[in-house]
Design a protein around this nucleic acid. Structure first.
Lengths: 208, 208
DNA sequence: TAGATTGTTAATCGATTAACAATC
DNA sequence: TAGATTGTTAATCGATTAACAATC
């Protein structure tokens, strides 16, 4: 299990492998060869074998890969065998969508609190009876509660204000939906989802 | 303007350039060199010059790049000088977020209709008075209205059912938020946003 | 003109694909 | 054992960086 120095390209492919393997599991497929997986996923068999080998041999010569085992191993590499406490900062439609989404889709990510700045939203129950808290009380909340991940579903200005508060509290990761880069100490992981950039890429492809 | 054969890596970077240049414009910056842009964006100056040159010389030796001109040219390359008619299929929280988002954030993308399958949502006014229509009437709608882009903000099963209807109507692009690949004729562009994969990547990074 | 900075070629680096020996 | 398929090395391809001549 030499997981050091795995290239970013490989990591980015892991969730897709995980999704396809999950589908195969649902279809009760027990084993699969790199060649079969290759034709389902439209990538080369060579890449599949190369990718899996970065983490040590998951397969068996002459047999292929055990779907359940491979699925679970990739889940472990991705850290999906653990649980994470998550807060949502920004209780607008996107924040609500993410809160619900994470709750239903993924077991390991537990939404513990939702914050917003708008008086109109504060106190409103959103998901599963979680009341929206005032974002001005965020620092206080963080001083008494452990939080692994904060999802930032609020406008740029708010995100820039909130980022240092989260850094101070040593949150482990930030899932950033705001249209801005966040300047944070290197130990805090930032994963950004720039929806406008995705839409621009779609726009480009439509025209070329 | 030789826009043929531009690598995917370059295209994926264009929206980010566009965002930074937009910020610079807001700050009334008139000109910028690849060196300055390099230090702001944390990429090499060499890459910046290489990227821009794929589309023909935007700059001037000894001077740098004119921010406004460069911003507009990249906008054109991305197709942001045009308008697009868009529909949202799936009127849950994510669909509502996207509908609002696209309306407010980006001028060129006009939301013309919103569809859902749930009786509880149909008829409900969502954004700017757009009533949610029954997804079973989608084919009919498409036969009488021009649609450039469809955003799929509904579960996998629904997305797979709706995709061929959209293909039949020759929608130009699909912005896919469902956790699945869509099998479509090659002339239909698919841009997927897999939120769960993004969250898994965050999870990985937290642990490594 | 001199200084600055691009445009562009060449060198390096990294990622993907091909090939095949190892082995189940 | 023979056939299948991995694990892994070598070859290819593509993308990034470095260097510098062109030129504003």
């Amino acid at each position: 299990m030499d997981e050091k120095g795995i290239s970013k390209a490989v990591i980015n492919r892991l969730p897709r492998y995980y999704r396809f393997l999950g589908n195969l599991l649902d279809q009760k497929v027990e084993r699969i060869s790199s060649g079969e997986l290759s034709s389902i996923m439209h990538v080369t068999a060579s890449q599949i074998r190369q990718d899996f080998n970065h983490f040590g041999g998951f397969g068996q010569q002459g047999y292929g890969y055990n779907v359940k085992y491979l699925y679970e191993e990739i889940g472990k590499i991705l850290g999906l065998d653990q649980t994470y406490t998550m807060i949502i900062v920004g209780a607008g439609r996107l924040g609500q969508a993410i809160a619900n989404y994470v709750r239903f889709e993924k077991r390991g990510f537990q939404v513990a609190a939702v914050f917003d700045q708008s008086p109109a939203l504060i106190g409103t129950p959103t998901v599963h009876g979680l009341a929206v808290q005032d974002v001005s009380t965020l620092a206080e909340y963080l001083s008494t509660h452990h939080v692994d991940i904060a999802a930032l579903t609020l406008p740029t200005k708010g995100a820039l204000e909130v980022a240092p508060v989260l850094a101070e509290a040593k949150v482990r990761g930030i899932w950033n939906f705001a249209h801005t880069e966040l300047e944070l100490p290197p130990e805090i992981v930032v994963q950004s989802v720039h929806l406008s950039e995705s839409l621009m890429q779609l726009s480009y492809k439509i025209n070329h």
